[in-house]
Design a protein around this nucleic acid. Structure first.
Lengths: 179, 179
DNA sequence: AATAATTTGTTGCCTGTGCAACAATAACAA
DNA sequence: TTGTTATTGTTGCACAGGCAACAAATTATT
């Protein structure tokens, strides 16, 4: 147990070894997985920066894990010498928070689209921009993609087929091309 | 035009006067409003902290506006004297970014719920927690709520009625009570 | 008070997509 | 090879919820 729902956290962590996931319980008490954290991933960055807010979710290790914890207060105050390393650390930290926010933003953009087709198109366009090409390799499989877009995997497959038939995209497994 | 889509921004802004909104164009070229910014709101905080990333959206003033711009680099480096004010400014800035992220996170939680009823329940539970009571006043109207949850306003009204009939909630206009 | 404008509630219809169950293909191991 | 597992694709059915159109209630304006 790395972070427990309902508690405040004044530190954030970097997962050095192992893996973890964040979970919450929905209104009916069912446990649902929110995010997966792999080696090198950050844990609780948003929470640490938001003082007095209690964690809405629990972060659990899913394998033997080593986490490097950073006290938030020491990150922002820096050291007496105003050294470059502290400044760099701070910059990296802010960049991590911002990236988390931007990722969430992009996901919201997908989720807001009214149809499965538009969700897919929005997502594919994002990936295409990331890889600077209309031809690209999907970094995730259909299951994860369906979860990300919050649609049924079968509906995702079905719509991908239709989009191919309509000449919007070409694909084979994870190799995609936007027309 | 405060921020233009496709450009990088090394500053963020606080809207001192007037109002603004952020917009983007969807895959079919239709313009859609993403967020509204009111007096006192922040503009481009995520973007400024993520160097080299180009803005996915355009921010436009919707009335005569005054924006106080902060160069990102000066926020994080602080001044020579390592003064308390600079430190405070930094702390506030990080807190703004983090809050944006947490807000997005909460919205994603709502959007991920499979049914309108669960979306509503998740949202109402959030508001209830914010106001520390099972009786609370909804801060937004039905239109905005429907947009936020990404459902039809009519479907929202319909489901609210059903939930009342099922004894899950009580409400009159914007006064709500979770049972 | 009278009128207009805004917000909220209601309802019938119809389509998109969740669900379930299964088939096909690819990846991997023995 | 053969068997095993993981991934991807397909399809029929049912129904939740989008859409449209209207009614009721509340608030603002003259």
């Amino acid at each position: 147990m790395i972070i427990e729902a309902g508690t405040v956290a004044a530190e954030f962590g970097i997962l050095l070894e192992g893996s973890a996931h964040s979970i919450k319980w929905d209104a009916s008490g069912k446990q649902i997985i929110i995010t997966m954290v792999e080696k090198g991933g950050a844990i609780g960055v948003l929470l640490a920066a938001s003082p007095q807010r209690v964690s809405p979710l629990t972060v659990q290790a899913t394998a033997d894990a080593t986490v490097l914890m950073f006290p938030f207060s020491q990150i922002i105050t820096g050291c007496e010498k105003k050294c470059r390393h502290h400044e760099r650390l701070l910059q990296n930290y802010i960049s991590i928070i911002a990236d988390k926010g931007i990722e969430l933003h992009e996901r919201v953009n997908c989720l807001l689209e009214p149809t499965v087709r538009k969700k897919i198109l929005t997502y594919l366009t994002n990936i295409s921009h990331e890889q600077n090409s209309t031809e690209f390799i999907l970094p995730i499989n259909r299951n994860i993609m369906a979860e990300y877009l919050n649609v049924e995997r079968s509906a995702l497959s079905r719509e991908l087929s239709r989009m191919k038939a309509d000449g919007l995209i070409e694909y084979n497994r994870n190799n995609f091309k936007l027309m």
